[in-house]
Design a binder for these strands. Structure first.
Length: 827
RNA sequence: GCGAGGGUGGCGGAGUUGGUAGACGUGCCAGACUUAGGAUCUGGUGGGGCAACCUGUGCGGGUUCGAGUCCCGCCCCUCGCACCA
């Protein structure tokens, strides 16, 4: 018997698949399509186990769909712009382009060694000018539509990366990439107006029913839509000057006892200029800029500006404060403080002895909350020694004509009234900020903009694209495009005079925001996307990747698709119909990482066991969305299983194909026949819902059955061979190389890829007899086997008879018969 | 604090129109084949007990003939957001 020589087999079939272009996408409109996509990797040098897991899952789905005769698009490419290439340039004295290309070619060979079914003819790399040209083209479209704009703003700056970052790329106040604490810096930068799509992004969650709930909830949280009211507080000293404050609680407006500005609020300068406390206040504002350590409760601090604002509903003059607990980045950077009904304001007013005015009374005694003991249930008074704000519902008081109204109703009524009085207006506010896309980097897409002294900001003409990166980079030090005078100097497209180019490049998340759409027509040099192809292939039917992109990449991509639809490039509202977020690969309880020294190199495992074993292990060890603990013993188990399959097929490879007539089979043969078809059913249903671990375990059970099977007459062998044939087909998405080889060994000359997925015969699942569990008082006591057509009475009698010794002298109160399952005798 | 997801053998994990808890794998124990086997095949394996049985799915209640699964109240873990007005 041949030994399972995985190295030879895998090499043989990888070559054959490539030569025969087995995975070339067939665009055929009379067939249903399936677009299976895994998140493309950054070409860091080598693939890691996380990639192997991600791409194995995708490969199983793609191959499974191929066997269903579907036109499958399964492409792969490279997220090839990024900072590590620049660091490599400095540290290893190699051009970012060369370093990236080398990495791509090695990683591509690794992916091929795994046997993944990619259509490599559609490969793309975002650092190639035939890709980033279309980034620039899209940028110009965004600019035309007013969706790209330049603005001076306080932006996030990472000193290590020497560049700015988008809000989404700041994690716990630190750079998402290098973990350096982020500082704010005032710079003029390019933004994408993602906020214009905030509502669409939120509303279209309804189209994403098959996305994991937690991803949707993270995005919802990030977008942060809230309904409220913007209220105008005029300055007492100059009623032309207005502080706009956003609140979700207009019902508490009569309880506003002061106004608070964020330390960065633009009006502050004017308010404090020339006052006696000016210097102190400026010092305080500086202090507020210092970021404190994380998960540390920040103490509320503030200062009185000396100015007063007018509460528009009652003309009261209330003090204007500056405090660190008000954020410039949300709403208008100013709030009305209602200490009686907002815990934060309450704490602040206690600290600085600011007045507290109750404007909502709990309705009944039971409205008391455990956190807010009230001395008298019906009249909440600040003098009651309130220990916290009352944030529950109630009845308005101290609120003029609105007294007695329920506060929930009052929100709308007061908003409407303020609108009529022109002192405020209903407003929807979002937490989402615009996307800062400028980066002070070399290795990225140049922003196609020219600055002219007389014409200002002038977009590059479309036919001038691409604006190429200067290639002759001296790699000895950190460079940006500003280091290349020959790149900067140009002529103004409008007036022809000397002008200079924008030297910032785009955030690399721009690249990955539409690459999935480029795959439908990757070589089109006339347009970014061939709309016809897009109509056929988009949206991606199944997207697979890590949860770490829950907000960043997945939100940006959704935004891009909506813009691309609005400019008529595509006709879809959402990029990814279904999303599978796979868990991490961990070892010894921690994520594999160089610093922890617990990395397992895929190359080593593939060399030792082969790709098929690695694939089986990864799929079997845990369901895809859960974390997977790496286990050498688990890999051994997968290896043993494949060898078991290999041996059983070898033992019974030669044989006859003959029609099976179930009624003529021996009892064991019929049992195996039935088991085979039940396995087909189980495996099919499991793969449909991505339960690869249980699909493989079902195959293992079938193999175990085969080892027990001893029928060696002709029909016995026919049944066994039918089982083997189906087993090989079912395992082929998981362990494709070995299955191709075994497919040949059982007498086929074609590729298994030409074979349809097996279907089970319902009649084969039918049994002559069934097992019935006999319970007494809900506890299993015995089992009986009865003919499948037995009536309830017969089953009941059999059951009572089986446990008669345990029933003697007992009164039977009740007997429950569940068809086909059990009998429960209650005594 | 808010939101989402979890808690089942030594370990990874099965199991929901409520119906034999622990499939499959791993580990461990035993047997077979063998000069030998960390190869392979076979059997056993939640805990307690010689056994009949008892007990067991984070904790406490409840519904039910019957609960890992449904309901109520807790505890713990993971992830995300977090002074968002």
């Amino acid at each position: 018997m041949d030994k399972y020589n995985f190295a030879e087999i895998e090499n043989k079939w990888q070559k054959r698949w490539e030569q025969e272009k087995r995975f070339k996408t067939v665009t055929s409109t009379d067939k249903p399509k399936y677009y299976c996509l895994e998140m493309f990797p950054y070409p860091s040098g080598r693939i890691h186990m996380g990639h192997v897991r991600n791409y194995t899952i995708g490969d199983v789905i793609a191959r499974y769909k191929m066997m269903h005769g579907v036109s499958v698009l399964h492409p792969m490419g490279w997220d090839a712009f990024g900072l590590p290439a620049e660091n490599a340039a400095m540290n290893k004295n190699v051009h970012p382009s060369e370093w990236t290309q080398n990495n791509i070619s090695y990683m591509k060979s690794q992916l091929k060694r795994m046997g993944f079914s990619y259509d490599w003819d559609r490969e793309l790399a975002t650092c190639n000018e035939d890709y980033y040209k279309w980034n620039q083209w899209l940028f110009l479209k965004f600019y035309e539509k007013g969706l790209a704009y330049k603005q001076e703003a306080d932006v996030n700056w990472c000193n290590t990366c020497q560049t700015v970052l988008a809000n989404e790329q700041v994690v716990d106040s630190c750079c998402w990439r290098c973990n350096t604490p982020v500082r704010t810096k005032r710079l003029s930068q390019w933004f994408f107006r993602i906020t214009a799509y905030a509502d669409n992004l939120l509303a279209d969650h309804s189209l994403l029913g098959n996305w994991p709930e937690r991803v949707l909830s993270m995005q919802k949280n990030w977008i942060g839509k809230s309904y409220g009211c913007e209220i105008d507080f005029r300055l007492a000293s100059d009623t032309e000057k207005i502080i706009k404050a956003f609140t979700t609680r207009p019902d508490t407006i009569f309880g506003a006892t002061y106004v608070v500005l964020a330390p960065q609020h633009p009006l502050i300068d004017e308010l404090i200029k020339g006052t006696e406390n000016e210097e102190q206040i400026r010092q305080f504002i500086e202090q507020c800029k210092v970021r404190v350590a994380l998960d540390e409760e920040v103490e509320k601090k503030g200062m009185f500006t000396g100015a007063y604002a007018i509460n528009p509903v009652n003309s009261e003059h209330i003090p204007v404060w500056i405090a660190n607990y008000v954020l410039m980045g949300y709403g208008s950077g100013a709030i009305m403080a209602v200490p009686a009904h907002d815990q934060r304001d309450f704490e602040f007013s206690k600290k600085y002895d600011l007045p507290i005015r109750v404007v909502i009374q709990p309705e009944l005694q039971q409205a008391q909350t455990p956190h807010c003991p009230l001395s008298t249930a019906f009249s909440l008074q600040p003098s009651d020694n309130m220990t916290c704000a009352y944030e529950e519902e109630g009845i308005l008081t101290n609120s003029g004509v609105f007294n007695g109204m329920g506060n929930v109703d009052a929100k709308g009524t007061i908003t409407k009234w303020m609108d009529e009085e022109k002192i405020g207006r209903g407003k929807i506010n979002y937490r989402l900020r615009d996307w800062l896309v400028s980066r002070q980097r070399y290795w990225g897409t140049p922003i196609p903009i020219i600055y002219c002294e007389s014409c200002g900001i002038v977009p590059v003409k479309e036919d001038e694209l691409p604006i190429r990166l200067p290639k002759e980079l001296d790699v000895s030090g950190r460079k940006t495009l500003a280091s290349f005078p020959e790149f900067i100097h140009t002529k103004c497209p409008a007036c022809g005079r000397d002008a200079s180019r924008e030297t910032d490049t785009m955030d690399t998340f721009v690249d990955s925001s539409w690459y999935f759409a480029r795959y439908v027509s990757p070589h089109d040099d006339k347009q970014p996307i061939d709309t016809k192809q897009a109509d056929y292939f988009l949206p991606v039917d199944q997207y697979i990747g890590g949860i770490e992109h829950a907000i960043l990449h997945l939100l940006y991509s959704r935004f891009f698709v909506k813009v691309m639809a609005d400019i008529g490039l595509i006709n879809h509202k959402e990029p990814f119909a279904n999303l599978l977020t796979q868990g991490m690969v961990i070892k010894d309880g921690a994520k594999m990482s160089k610093s922890k020294g617990n990395v397992v190199d895929p190359d080593d495992i593939v060399n030792k066991y082969g790709a098929d074993t690695v694939r089986i292990f990864i799929l079997f060890a845990a369901p895809p969305e859960k974390d997977l603990e790496w286990s050498e013993q688990g890999v051994e188990g997968a290896w043993r299983f494949l060898n078991r399959v290999w041996r059983i097929v070898q033992q019974h490879a030669a044989g006859v194909r003959q029609e099976i007539k179930p009624e003529n089979l021996s009892v064991p043969a019929k049992a195996l026949y039935s088991f085979t078809h039940r396995t087909i059913k189980r495996v099919t249903e499991d793969i449909d819902v991505f339960h690869f671990n249980t699909a493989i375990s079902a195959c293992m059970e079938l193999v175990n059955e085969m080892y027990q099977y001893k029928e060696d007459d002709t029909m016995g062998l026919v049944v066994l061979q039918e089982a083997l044939r189906n087993l090989i087909l079912m395992l082929s998405p998981f362990a494709p190389h070995m299955c191709e080889e075994l497919w040949g060994k059982i007498g086929n000359s074609t590729s298994i890829l030409d074979e349809p997925w097996p279907t089970y015969l319902p009649e084969a699942l039918q049994k002559d007899s069934i097992l019935i569990v006999v319970q007494i008082n809900g506890k299993a006591r015995d089992k009986i086997t009865v003919p499948v057509e037995s009536t309830e009475d017969v089953i009941k009698a059999e059951a009572l008879n089986a446990v008669s010794d345990k029933l003697s002298g007992k009164e039977i109160k009740k007997v429950i018969v569940v068809a086909g399952r059990l009998v429960n005798i209650v005594i």
